[in-house]
Design a protein around this nucleic acid. Sequence first.
DNA 1: CCCCAGGCGTCCA
DNA 2: TGGACGCATGGG
Length: 222
Amino acid sequence: MPRRIEARKGRILRRIYDRLCEVYGPQHWWPAETPFEVMVGTILVQNTNWANVEKAIQALKDRKCLSLNALRALSENELAGLIRPAGTFRVKARRLRNLLDLIAGWGSVTRMARAPLDVLRRKLLDVNGVGPETADSILLYARQKPVFVVDAYTRRLLDRHGFPEGRAGYDDIQALFMRHCPRDVRVYNEYHALIVRLGKDFKGLDAVRRKEYPLKAAHFFL
DNA sequence: CCCCAGGCGTCCA
DNA sequence: TGGACGCATGGG
């Protein structure tokens, strides 16, 4: 890839970030009280509206179950019942337990946090039910590590701005952003949150099909 | 009634 | 290695 093109990509990505900051302001992510709550949330939010996740989290809090030991004490069926509002609840109950097992292997969230970044990421990805976005969300929002999180909105954003990376794999997209943006937890935290925020304004694949999104986005950003 | 949400694993060519 | 498909509630 010619250096000129690379430099141009960088300018566009940084400009988009600046504009999103101006328009939407700080997003205050992740909406949770503790790192443990963040981790639970990353599983519950998979392919799910955040409003439904809040209901599930609240149900766990009401039952005083939002802790490592309390959650592990529940049977899979009990857990599934509590997180029902989050949807795909049987699958998520199993995945959540898998993640809890990993944390328990370290003994606590605090001890887990001492593991080196690359080791922890691999261990997270080994958990059935934790994919790249979930793993990176945990690293960024629960562990405060400078890791860029890629999601469906990110792909669409790139696609709509003519980046070939819009069709690329997760790691390539992540590398693109991390190559061109400061390796700063604060920046990656805001950037991902802002992309999601923008996505909500241009909701649904339907809008893309009707070509509303590219027109508005081009006008909006450039 | 429709579509879809801050994904992931599995199965199959 | 890439693409369909199931998971499932709740909101628009």
